[in-house]
Amino acid sequence: MTTNNTSLALSTDIGSASRLTQLGLAAFLGLFIVGFAGFSHISAVHNAAHDVRHSLAFPCH
């Protein structure tokens, strides 16, 4: 019976660490995409991001 409790506690710890890792990677990816599109010197990338912001009614000026 103790092996079931131990494996349950171990799987909970792994799930929590996995969620934290996923959250960190998602935040990094989001910041990278916003930073790349927002500060890109490639006009096509910057203009596409600008048009998307306007289509979502997000103020960017």
Rank of each mutant, 00 (worst) to 15 (best):
S7T: 11
L29I: 03
V45C: 05
T21S: 01
L10Y: 06
S43I: 15
L25Y: 10
N47W: 03
A17M: 04
G35E: 00
L20A: 12
G30S: 10
L31I: 10
S7E: 05
T21P: 00
S7M: 12
F58Y: 03
A57K: 13
G35T: 01
I14L: 09
A44Q: 14
V52P: 00
S40D: 15
S43Q: 13
P59W: 13
A17T: 08
T21E: 04
I42H: 14
T6L: 14
S40R: 05
P59H: 11
L10A: 15
L20E: 15
S55M: 04
T6N: 12
S18H: 13
G35R: 02
M1C: 01
A48D: 07
S40T: 09
T6D: 14
S7K: 09
N47K: 13
F28A: 09
H61D: 14
D13H: 10
V34A: 15
H54M: 10
L10C: 04
G30A: 15
T21K: 03
T2W: 00
S7P: 01
G30C: 07
L20C: 03
V52D: 02
H41A: 05
P59T: 13
R19P: 00
I33S: 02
S55N: 04
R53Q: 15
H41R: 13
F36S: 04
F32V: 03
V34M: 09
S11K: 03
H46S: 13
L8P: 05
L25T: 14
L20D: 11
L23K: 13
N47I: 09
L56P: 04
H50N: 06
S16Q: 11
A37M: 11
L56Y: 08
A37K: 02
T6R: 12
D51E: 08
S7F: 08
F39V: 02
